[in-house]
Design a protein around this nucleic acid. Sequence first.
DNA 1: TCGGATTACGTGCACCGTAATGATC
DNA 2: GATCATTACGGTGCACGTAATCCGA
Lengths: 272, 272
Amino acid sequence: MIEIYLLEQLEAFARCGTLSAAAEELHLSQPALTRSMKKLEDVIGVQLFERGKNKLSLNENGKLAAEYARRVLEQDREIAERVRAFDRASHTISIGACAPVPLEQIVPQVTSLYEGMTVSQELRPDAPLLEGLRDGTYQLIVLHEEPTDEALYWAPCGEEQLYITLPKAHPMAGRDGIWLKELANMNILLFSQIGFWYELCLEKIPNPQFLVQASNLPVFTSSHFLQNPNIPHDDSRVVIPLLDDETHVRYYLACKSGDRKRFAPLFKRLSE
Amino acid sequence: MIEIYLLEQLEAFARCGTLSAAAEELHLSQPALTRSMKKLEDVIGVQLFERGKNKLSLNENGKLAAEYARRVLEQDREIAERVRAFDRASHTISIGACAPVPLEQIVPQVTSLYEGMTVSQELRPDAPLLEGLRDGTYQLIVLHEEPTDEALYWAPCGEEQLYITLPKAHPMAGRDGIWLKELANMNILLFSQIGFWYELCLEKIPNPQFLVQASNLPVFTSSHFLQNPNIPHDDSRVVIPLLDDETHVRYYLACKSGDRKRFAPLFKRLSE
DNA sequence: TCGGATTACGTGCACCGTAATGATC
DNA sequence: GATCATTACGGTGCACGTAATCCGA
């Protein structure tokens, strides 16, 4: 059986062209390579090199052997990588979500229900989430539209309504509701990491003027923040609901049908 | 990089189930395997085994690693095999033919024209010959029908006419020619190793009665043997040509178009 | 004279075997 | 007691480095 170190050296020589260059790359001496190449020929039992006086090069056999060597080395490297990835995946639950808000409820539940597991989370649009669930990138995903895939299991996991808060002095501060299209050309304060909401605003507001940091500007907020008692109410502002259908969403937590049993405790908790 | 010997030992353990069984198979001691498996875990960096008190077994990581190991070992083995085969092929000319007669002319020519090359020959029907030429099993083939493949180069290389010899006392001994179908139900002496001729006789003679060894029976022969001065004429027999079209064939020597230049000297010799 | 391949020689490490221990059936 | 895994210890093969040689640009 041909040991890996011989293939490594052959591959390096094939790539570098000379023994000395390969030796330097491998942090080995030239004599070591000379011997290894001889040994390789000995083990395989055929000539692999053309030997000039102070010139060594691969013949056709050698080129073929080097090509095979590359493949074996590639596969050999992959063993460690793949097994590590598999091990990592086996005690990691990856959650993909279209928005951060539902994660605030789900992640703590997952963490406490599946002790010892690492929980990773990521914000993505719905399409890559579905793709990622299928290919194993995610074990759980949160969508803002109900899926239709037969191979999935899902349940609702909360709702969210988008509001806008305005300084009391704002011309629209007296309104009972506002349409997104009415925000055209306005400077609005928008936080990053809001998931699909960002796409929604881009789509529905003509020529939006989002700013990263400002005060006295309109600011989006949602039912989630309004209901959180830890967030103090700002008396200088009024909170006005947005009227577009899309500003009220239902979230759905989904997993592969095959994982339904595994995540049953989680779905049960969330339904309570 | 994971050395091959570690993968070998992992694979053996996965197959045998216990370290001691694997150790015996590999002609190694148990301690050697214990250490190797530990080392493997160390190199990859994840647990590969479930450790009972005196029980060792693969966990899911280990099973995956063993599966990968099998593939790498397979590939590693193939390097030597394939390179040897390639080397062998590079100084072997394999000739496939549908009949032995044209080979008697071709093989000596090949041997003398391509010094140092090993010449191997084989009798096969036309179809596998064409297939074998394409896949590299043969570099030269002899057909008894003109090929049509654009990717081939070929030239005629002789003809052969089938005759039948009869004892002078035979009822048909006075005939000028005989049709194969007239040989129905007759005992005929047939030599083995006559290539496609055998198939032809089977096909065209109703209910043939071929014998392996006999005398005073009809015997096939062909122009090749009749023209050979070294074969004495048997005065007790008459030679009668067969009349079916198929009993007169033209042979064609063919190679891949890409080999045309390589075999040009051979084709030239044969055309003289 | 420098760079590259090869040979000669000594060395250290890594893998192995033997022996002993612990544990389970 | 038999079998299996593991630990401890001592040996050895083999891949490596250093040094020296040969050869060609």
